[in-house]
């Protein structure tokens, strides 16, 4: 147990260190001045420039610079944006929760719909119902997310006019930022009609969440179905059946638990796709998340923002992946290395 934990902690720290080193090297790789890329401040004169160089240890070796860079990262000085001139930490602090919120609702929806439907298809494998679900999931899995989001906008926003087009909440509601998660912020806000605001926020959430979760749900269904079919063929299911357990007992005690185990590490891979899709969908719905922010940053060549944004997103994804991996290892210690199920 302690060995596993320490292994994962070492892995986690090493990966983050590699990421930090990559983000540091980006300051040199990006076009333009290293100092400006690193700080986001354009020096007005030579005196300020020399002072900044001294402060960021640019006159010493790369290792010293990197050490100072790490120090600054931990201290929370992430530099300033070229475009807005605001501290990057505040900007990311606003944008990242919005993405996490969107992605987690989509993941939740995918789990709530995908696993039961997948189980149903797996239990009724090779029947018309199974073929129907399987084909539908294949279609859902093949949608390019940007096109799906555009179709949703065309149909639901422009033609039917039942849901709003963009943003997180109507401008009529003045919600102060406390947690960064809009639904929580509404609950915490005073002086507003909470139920109205809640309804409005949910309407804004509907389309982006649906667009992202269609793809994740489809792959969830396929993974669960495959896993259930694999478990059904195992000898212990036959043994359970011959002991006279009822269908429900077999399903909950034997099939479900064993079928969910190989799905868990695959969920870690899903997170990567999910975040990519969330980032693309955000740009279409003007969702003020990290994806939208990063893509605006690349359009405007805001190098300090890209440097830190990359670090923030990559660390978030890797933290989640490693946590899921660790969790998987803890609940299933028999597994030497995690294996991946097939679709």
């Amino acid at each position: 147990m302690i060995r596993i934990l320490s292994r994962y902690i070492i892995l986690f720290v090493l990966t983050l260190l590699v990421l930090a080193a990559m983000s540091f090297s980006l300051a040199y790789l990006f076009p333009g001045d290293v100092l400006t890329n690193l700080t986001g401040i354009t020096a007005q004169n030579d005196i300020q420039r020399n002072a900044l160089i001294k402060q960021f240890r640019l006159d010493s070796g790369y290792l010293v610079q990197f050490g100072y860079y790490l120090n600054e990262l931990f201290a929370g000085n992430w530099g300033y944006s070229f475009i807005s001139g605001l501290p990057l930490r505040d900007e990311i602090g606003l944008a990242l929760p919005a993405t996490i919120e969107l992605a987690s609702y989509a993941m939740l929806l995918a789990i709530v719909i995908g696993i039961p439907v997948g189980c149903y298809a797996g239990l009724r494998s090779y029947t018309p119902a199974d073929y129907g679900i399987n084909s539908a999931s294949m279609v859902g899995y093949s949608f390019p997310v940007f096109w799906l989001a555009l179709l949703f906008i065309l149909v639901f926003s422009l033609e039917l006019n039942i849901v709003p087009l963009s943003g997180r909440i109507s401008l009529l509601f003045d919600i102060p930022d406390k947690t960064g998660f809009i639904l929580l912020d509404i609950l915490l806000a005073d002086n507003i009609d909470r139920s109205l605001a809640f309804k409005d926020a949910l309407q804004h959430l509907l389309l982006p969440t649906l667009a992202i979760s269609t793809i994740t749900t489809a792959s969830m269904i396929r993974l669960t179905r495959r896993s259930v079919i694999d478990v059904l063929n195992r000898p212990y299911i036959a043994a359970a059946r011959s002991r006279g357990l009822s269908r429900w007992q077999i399903f909950f005690r034997h099939i479900l638990r064993n079928a969910l185990l190989p799905i868990l590490p695959l969920m870690a891979i899903q997170i990567t796709t999910l975040i990519t899709n969330a980032m693309i969908v955000e740009t279409l719905f003007s969702w003020p998340g990290i994806g939208n922010w990063l893509i605006q940053a690349i359009y405007q060549r805001d190098y300090p923002a890209l440097r830190v944004g990359m670090l923030a997103v990559a660390s978030m994804v890797i933290t989640l992946t490693i946590l899921i991996d660790l969790f998987n290892r803890l609940i299933d210690p028999s597994r030497e290395k995690y294996e991946r199920a097939t679709v």
Binding site: T272, I275, M310, T321
Partner: peptide, 20 residues
Amino acid sequence: LLDALMAIPTLLIAIIIVAV
């Protein structure tokens, strides 16, 4: 290292490469 690299979203890698 590969597992870590695998976790970074494609779009992010693309944005960085386009920036460089």
